[in-house]
């Protein structure tokens, strides 16, 4: 297109779009510093009168932030670790090992991607409630609350990801067979081949998949809401903050809610800014979201 003239109209469109995108974030940060009676009152003021940190202190008091943080971190770590491990192992097996039923298993993995998540909330919840020999249940899954009382419940339905396996397989396939064969002739077992060759060779895609999984797990809301309604001890950051905003007069506590939101959004935002290229590549590869 015409690149010689200064594209002022394009700048106008892109900059105003960017302002629309960023202003809600700025409003969140500004409100988190506002004092009592300053937020949600007319006439509207964008900037706080003073940058007061008391809302952040209040967020720690009213939200039990350390516990929420711990639950979010544990669930996110479990999910990310498990998805990476299972995707890499299964991806390697499907790409490079020969065994009967390989095509069938691969098709099965692909088919898992077509089921929308909302189909599973109810049965997953019931399966965890009736998990045998957990949370006071007997062998047939009766009598107790099952796995729903444990932090593990937050992670359980997300531990394996069909898309992750597909993605890893596509990248493992690109590793030359000769490299793997050479290692085998040197006496390396399949596990060694996987750990010493496949894992290092697929490092970029591991970072991409890890980042996508981390962000999704950290931001997950609906499932965490279900689990922590049954057991408040396993509440995550998003659920805890939403609860505060639902149950107290919003105009009074809004600055505290915003402070909590800033703290909960910050880890992911920093990670995204540091590893942006990998994340963007992941979105392109998944094509969804």
């Amino acid at each position: 297109m015409n690149r010689r003239r200064f594209p002022w109209l394009s700048y106008l469109v892109v900059v105003s779009g960017a302002v629309l995108t960023v202003v809600p974030f700025l409003d969140m940060v500004m409100t988190s510093f506002k004092g009592p009676g300053e937020a949600g009152t007319l006439p509207y003021r964008f900037l706080p009168k003073a940058f007061d940190l008391s809302n952040y202190r209040a967020a720690f008091d009213q939200l039990d932030l350390p516990v929420l943080f711990r639950n979010s971190v544990v669930a996110t770590a479990l999910i990310t670790g498990s998805v990476l491990l299972t995707s890499s192992l299964a991806g390697y097996a499907l790409a490079k090992l020969r065994f009967p039923g390989r095509d069938f298993v691969f098709r099965l993995v692909l088919s898992t991607m077509m089921f929308p998540p909302f189909l599973f909330f109810i049965p997953h919840f019931l399966i965890l409630v009736h998990w045998p020999l957990a949370g006071g249940n007997d062998l047939l899954g009766r009598g107790g609350a099952g796995l729903t009382v444990s932090v593990v419940a937050l992670a359980m339905p997300f531990l394996v990801n069909g898309f992750g396996i597909f993605l890893m397989r596509q990248f493992v396939i690109a590793i030359p067979d000769e490299v793997l064969e050479a290692a085998r002739i040197d006496g390396a077992g399949e596990f060694t081949v996987w750990w010493r060759i496949v894992v290092p060779q697929t490092k970029p895609v591991v970072v991409t998949l890890g980042l996508l999984t981390f962000v999704d797990a950290w931001n997950e809301y609906i499932w965490a809401l279900l689990v922590s309604t049954a057991e408040p001890e396993v509440m995550t950051l998003p659920v805890g903050i939403q609860l505060l905003q639902d149950h107290v007069d919003p105009t009074r506590t809004m600055p505290i809610v915003m402070a909590g939101l800033v703290l909960s959004v910050l880890p992911v935002l920093v990670l995204f800014l540091l590893l942006q290229k990998h994340y963007v590549r992941g979105i392109m590869l998944s094509g969804l979201k």
Binding site: F25, G40, P238, Q242, P250, T251, V257, M258, S264, V265
Partner: peptide, 26 residues
């Protein structure tokens, strides 16, 4: 910049906008 909302939890997005839609909001 345009990507920021995508990595932000729905709880943050929803609450910030809910607050912006309030009578005394942005």
């Amino acid at each position: 910049l345009y990507f920021l909302p995508i990595v932000t939890t729905v709880v943050a997005v929803g609450n910030v906008w809910k607050y912006m839609y309030e009578p005394g909001g942005l």
